[in-house]
Simulated scan of single mutants.
Amino acid sequence: MTSVEIVRVGPDEWETFRDVRLASLAEAPGAFGASYDDWVHAPESRWRSRLTDVPFTVVAMSDGRGVGVVSGAQADGHVELISMWVAPDDRGTGLAGRLIDAVAEWASSGGHDTYLMVRDDNARALAAYEKAGFVDLGIPDGWPADAPLERRMRRARA
């Protein structure tokens, strides 16, 4: 197996982020709030804005291509882990844990806990988050009856 490097990206690396983000949206369309169609024709300015508005994004690079991505967004006194994805061929390798840890460590360095939302039917993701130290807080009260169920999870700062 080739080595995988975790690289923090910002607005100047928008093309690297774009490529892995579009791959994630195409491969796992039900896992995200956004869709491939929402982003496939987005101009450079929109990609750069995403990487400015969300202050922490890392991409897992292997042989010059993105095989994983995750972001950390600042929220009311905590960090929200968002946009997590690992390419199918790289699942089960520990890469998910490395990406999760990158966000949680960034959050902890700012004195924050890390939270996330994950689809209730995504057993693999739930297991990865629990293995990485997240506690399942359940489905939030008042969850819309017509929306796919999502669980709230929390990892306390180190």
Rank of each mutant, 00 (worst) to 15 (best):
H112T: 05
A145V: 14
T52W: 01
D120A: 15
L25W: 10
D120T: 10
P144H: 04
T52N: 06
V54W: 11
V103C: 04
Q74E: 15
D136G: 07
D146I: 04
V4H: 00
S109H: 12
R157T: 09
Y129V: 04
G64A: 11
V79S: 11
A34V: 02
P55S: 04
A73P: 07
V70R: 06
M61E: 10
D146E: 14
S45I: 14
G138H: 01
M1I: 13
E5A: 15
S109K: 11
I82C: 09
D101L: 04
W47F: 09
V103Y: 02
A156I: 15
V54R: 05
V58H: 00
F32P: 09
R18S: 01
D89P: 06
A23G: 04
G68D: 00
T57E: 00
P43H: 13
D90M: 14
I6E: 07
A123S: 13
T114F: 03
M61T: 04
F56E: 13
A102Y: 08
A42G: 05
P140C: 04
R8H: 13
I82K: 14
V40S: 10
A132H: 08
L22A: 09
R154I: 11
D113Q: 13
A104V: 10
A42D: 09
A125M: 05
W14A: 00
F56N: 07
R91K: 01
V79Y: 13
P140R: 06
D37H: 11
D146M: 03
G133K: 11
F32T: 08
W47I: 00
A75V: 15
D63T: 01
D121I: 13
D120C: 10
F56C: 09
S71P: 00
G68Q: 01
D53N: 14
Q74P: 14
R119C: 08
R154Y: 05
A107Q: 11
A147T: 10
G77W: 10
R154H: 07
E27F: 09
A107N: 13
D120P: 06
D146K: 06
E5R: 13
A23W: 05
R65M: 05
M61W: 07
A102F: 12
A123D: 14
G77T: 11
M84G: 01
R50T: 09
D136Y: 02
E150W: 00
H78F: 15
S49F: 03
D76C: 08
Y129F: 11
L126E: 12
P144W: 09
V103T: 06
H112M: 09
R8K: 14
A147P: 00
A73F: 12
V86R: 00
E150H: 11
E150N: 07
R46F: 04
E5G: 04
V40P: 01
A128W: 03
L22Y: 02
V118Q: 06
A23L: 07
R119K: 11
R152N: 07
F56Q: 09
W85S: 01
G111K: 12
S71H: 00
P140W: 03
E130A: 14
G66D: 03
S83I: 02
R124T: 13
T114D: 08
V20M: 02
S49L: 08
A73C: 13
L126C: 12
R48W: 02
F56W: 09
E15D: 08
Y129Q: 06
D113L: 12
A123P: 02
L51T: 03
P140H: 05
W39E: 13
I100G: 02
